[in-house]
Amino acid sequence: MLYFDHCASTPPYEEVVKTMMEVMKSQYANPSSLHRAGTDADKLIERSRALLADQLQTTNGKWVFTSGGTESNNLAIKGVARQYAGRGKHLITTQIEHASVYETFAQLEQEGFRVTYLPVSESGHVRIEQLEEALTDQTILVSVMHINNEIGSIQPIEQIGRLLKRYPKAMFHVDAVQSIGKLPVCIEEWGIDLLSGSAHKLRGPKGVGFLYVREGVTLYPLFTGGSQEYGNRAGTQNVPGIVASVKALRMSLESLEQRERRMRPLKQKLIQLISGIPELRLNGADPSAAHIIHFSYPGMKPEVIIHMLEQRGIMASTKSACSSKEDKPSRVLLAIGVSHEQAAGGVRISFGDEHEERDIVALGAALSHVVEQLKPLERRLT
């Protein structure tokens, strides 16, 4: 099997699986308990928190452990909006955010907040001048993802952070779920106030996320009923998951530069192969992540392509895994200006550490065969 769906989830490191099993066996006490077993578990969490801060080079904030990227995004956005609504009720995000961000802003609109959804260029990038035009003295939060989860566009996070330093009332949230372990992320240097991550996107376990909260920022909690995680997230912490996640983060960061060097030529090879198939259209443009390629077969339902690739032992996806079962065009593709037909026929390929050039060649050959088989059915499957 060739697994090309790393944006949805990644195979965990073997060492991470072993660590999680060991901690599950030895540290099963509730870390909030006052007895020794509880305090031992709590010490493991705090040690993991310190290691997380060290790995991502943060000294001026705290890390909150959550259940994943979706919760981290919700806590950051709703937490700031509800806590600081007295300062202003204007929020800014983009038209191409992950559903866990986009739909969170839609909920806040129902609560009386005004949201500006910034357009993007044809390549899928935010324009700094449009962001600056959207800022007002009522803006309390700007949320922009680092790497888009569908087309891989890399947003100018450093430049946005530099701009927002002139607007101290506006806090800056970054969804870095697809970028941590893939690109350098300089949280404090770039002026980021809140940053979301997810362990299973970087070869850690599912069910663990993390959220950076700059010192001085207070969040209105989503959950109540306990004082865990500095009062930001009530509930018993996932001790084995947290320990294993921080180990996965360390391992991913240690191989970050090597990963980028390996994946960039693989992406270029696949672009070359896809460009040789006239029926397919590439979506997005550089600067983009090395591990993501998105293309469309206009006039063809993407799930047909996905299932035909699966029959050949190749796993890919249509769009975000959270939205892949929705039978409607990609919101992200529509935002970059492609036709409705092209936006409805998108397929995402996302690489991992295990891939080599021969895997890309095999994928290219499979795509060519699938397209040849589908051409006679093109009109009937739209």
Rank of each mutant, 00 (worst) to 15 (best):
C7P: 09
S9H: 05
K18S: 08
M21Y: 12
Y28G: 09
P31M: 10
S32D: 09
H35M: 12
A41P: 04
K43V: 01
L44E: 04
L44Y: 00
E46I: 08
R47Y: 12
A50R: 11
D54M: 11
L56N: 03
T66H: 08
G68I: 01
T70L: 07
S72T: 14
A76E: 06
A85Q: 14
G88T: 08
Q95V: 14
I96S: 15
E97A: 13
A99F: 08
V101Y: 08
L108H: 01
V120W: 00
S121E: 01
E122C: 13
S123C: 04
A134E: 15
L135P: 12
T139L: 13
H146A: 09
E150H: 12
E150C: 11
S153Q: 14
R162N: 13
R166W: 03
K169S: 08
K169V: 01
A170N: 04
F172M: 06
L183D: 15
L195D: 12
A199R: 03
H200M: 02
G204H: 05
V208N: 05
G209I: 10
Y212T: 00
L222Y: 05
S227M: 14
Q228C: 14
N232R: 12
A234S: 14
N238M: 04
V239D: 11
G241M: 09
R250G: 15
Q258H: 12
L270P: 03
S275W: 01
E279H: 07
N283C: 09
S288H: 06
G299M: 03
C322V: 13
E326Y: 05
S330I: 08
A335W: 06
I336K: 04
E341P: 03
R358H: 13
A362F: 00
L363I: 00
A366T: 00
S368T: 01
R380P: 12
